[in-house]
Simulated scan of single mutants.
Amino acid sequence: MVLTVSPERIELPPGSEVTLRYQTWADYEALLESRHDDAAIKIQFNAYTQEISIMAPLAGHGRRIDSLVDLVKALLRHRGRDWDSSHPVTLKRFQAAGAEPDACFYIQNWQAVLGKDRIDLSEDLPPDLAIEMDLTSLTDLAIYRALNVPEVWIYRQGSLAIHAIAAEGYRASSTSPTFPDIDVKNLLPQYVERSWAAGSSVALREFEQLLKSL
């Protein structure tokens, strides 16, 4: 098992997580550089706790997030809405926090990020929706609150948790502010797991047929 974390190189076996304490923004930026845009490694920073978390997702992580992203896009198409999406992506607010959601969607302000290679939330608007697949580690919602992301979804063990931003942090919600008229909390996990068992295209096609009947 190779486990290396340094300003020069990061190597973690799939499914592992490392937490570094008493870290600074400069430490965080150095680790981002040492990763060399390797999407297989996720790095997040919380200035309040002075912690950096580094994660190497499992293979099942990528398959499920791809399926969930496809389902969200199908919902947006069904509603005739435009969007701009990224996965993975690094979201940063200078000296405060950094996170790498598995996927994020700009919907209300999709045109504001067109043509941008990187997003700095000290200057740019946050995405309307961030999605995390918690198979390797647990999502730190405090980081997303520092980034001011309005809505965060966390998928874990066949269940979708919806978190809507509030003054005190996030509140758990049974409905999505982005899709208030669709029961995404109960509906989407069925098709994410269906994609695992029957294939991504099969699950997506069945979901699109369902949407036509709603």
Rank of each mutant, 00 (worst) to 15 (best):
D84W: 12
G169A: 06
S85V: 08
S53A: 11
V69G: 00
T90Q: 03
Y48G: 08
N148A: 15
P177K: 12
L147P: 13
F105H: 02
G169R: 11
A146P: 10
I131V: 15
I162H: 03
A96V: 14
M55I: 09
E123K: 10
R79W: 03
H163R: 09
S85T: 14
I182A: 10
A56G: 11
V113P: 00
T49G: 06
K73C: 02
G80P: 05
E123S: 14
Q157W: 00
I143Y: 07
A146T: 14
V113T: 07
P101G: 06
A167E: 15
D124A: 00
L58K: 15
D66A: 13
A161K: 11
A103I: 04
P127A: 04
S67P: 00
F179M: 07
R156N: 07
P127N: 00
L160Q: 07
K92N: 06
S137E: 11
N109E: 13
K73Q: 10
Y170M: 09
H163G: 13
D102C: 11
K73G: 03
I131N: 14
I182W: 03
E123H: 04
D183F: 01
G60V: 09
T178M: 07
Q157F: 08
Q157H: 04
I182T: 12
A103E: 11
V184D: 01
L147V: 09
E151R: 15
V184L: 00
P127L: 09
K73W: 03
D120A: 08
V89H: 06
A59K: 12
A172C: 09
G62M: 00
P180E: 04
L68R: 00
K92T: 14
R63Y: 14
L147E: 13
S173F: 06
R156Q: 15
A164E: 05
E51V: 03
Y170H: 12
S159W: 07
P88D: 04
T178H: 07
D120P: 09
A112K: 07
Y106M: 08
I119K: 00
Q108T: 14
W110G: 04
L114G: 07
T175V: 13
G158Q: 13
G62S: 00
V152L: 10
R63M: 11
P180C: 06
A130C: 15
R77A: 08
V149W: 08
S137M: 04
H87S: 10
S176V: 02
P57A: 01
I162P: 06
K73L: 02
K185E: 01
Q50I: 01
A167N: 14
F94A: 15
